[in-house]
């Protein structure tokens, strides 16, 4: 579960997307003036399409650490969406054991940003039936063979990635 937030509309303030890696916070501003921001995942299995308050607090603290001047802006709305977390935090782009069925998923919370590149790699796989050079490691059987792409070395718990 990943929550996102929108504030009331304010004058132009952020003219790009700002990400704060150390505090886990990102923010941009919509054309209507609302600040759009989010941060960490809730970190437990959920189909409820809403998150819980501890992560709301965590995200807002990250925002205040990065941009204290947004502290008096009021929140307009928030929502939560399901994240397709994989066991090693990396995606899968591969054939499946079913002939003719291909899989592109497990993008965790990075899928939206990665869509152009993952689409190119997936199209390459579909067209040639062999993986694109940069997506070779995103195999479905990497968990079985022990070739996990565990970038942070956190192990096999989806909520740790």
């Amino acid at each position: 579960m990943l929550q996102a937030f929108v504030s009331e509309g304010i004058k132009p303030f952020v003219d790009g997307v700002v990400t704060f890696g150390a505090g886990h916070f990102y923010i941009s501003q919509s054309d209507k003036g609302g600040l759009v921001f989010g941060g960490d995942i809730d970190g437990y299995n959920s189909y409820a399409q809403r998150g819980n308050l501890p992560v709301v607090e965590d995200v807002l603290e990250g925002g205040m650490a990065l941009m204290p001047r947004i502290g008096r802006v009021r929140l307009l709305r928030s929502w939560g969406g399901i994240m397709d977390m994989s066991m090693d935090g990396s995606p899968i782009i591969d054939r499946t054991p079913i002939d003719g069925l291909y899989f592109n998923g497990g993008w965790c919370y990075g899928g939206f940003k990665a869509t152009p590149a993952s689409g190119l790699c997936f199209a390459h796989l579909l067209a040639r039936d062999e993986p694109h050079e940069v997506a070779k490691a995103y195999r479905l059987d990497r968990f079985r063979t022990g070739h996990m792409i565990d970038e942070k070395g956190m192990g096999n718990q989806p909520n740790l990635h």
Partner: peptide, 10 residues
């Protein structure tokens, strides 16, 4: 207690 006191294994 609030769920922020707990960590999750699955």
């Amino acid at each position: 207690r609030g769920n922020d006191e707990f960590s999750y294994l699955g």
